[in-house]
Simulated scan of single mutants.
Amino acid sequence: MSKIEDRCRLVLVAPDIPDGLERVKLVGDALKGGDVASVIVPQYGLSDADFQKHAEALVPVIQKAGAAALIEGDTRVAGRAKADGIHIAGAAAALAEAIERHAPKLIVGGGNATDRHHALEIGELRPDYVFFGRTDGDIKSEAHPKNLALAEWWASMIEIPCIVMGGMDPQSALAVAETGAEFVALRLAVFGEAEQAPSVVAAVNALLDEKAPRFEG
Rank of each mutant, 00 (worst) to 15 (best):
K211R: 15
H118F: 13
T75H: 12
D84H: 14
P60Q: 11
A155Y: 03
G85C: 09
D74M: 05
L174R: 05
V130W: 02
D209L: 08
A149H: 01
V13M: 04
E100N: 06
P127M: 06
E5H: 13
M1G: 13
D50E: 14
Q171R: 12
G73S: 09
I88F: 07
P127I: 04
R23I: 00
P198T: 11
V200I: 15
A49D: 12
L207V: 13
L120K: 07
G110N: 02
I86C: 05
K53C: 00
G166N: 08
R7D: 00
V13H: 00
C8Y: 01
G133N: 08
I4F: 00
H54K: 01
K146I: 14
D128M: 06
L26Y: 03
W153P: 02
A194V: 03
V190P: 06
E178R: 15
L174T: 06
G180W: 11
A93Y: 07
K146N: 10
V77A: 11
K25W: 10
A14L: 03
K82S: 11
I62F: 07
P213V: 03
F183K: 06
S156F: 01
Y129W: 11
L174Y: 04
A67R: 07
K32L: 06
D50Y: 10
C162T: 11
D29G: 07
P104T: 09
V36Q: 02
G79K: 09
E195Y: 02
M168F: 02
K140T: 14
E97V: 12
C162V: 11
W153K: 05
H144W: 07
I71Q: 05
R116I: 11
I40A: 00
V176N: 04
K3A: 14
A175G: 00
D29N: 12
D48S: 15
A91R: 15
V24P: 00
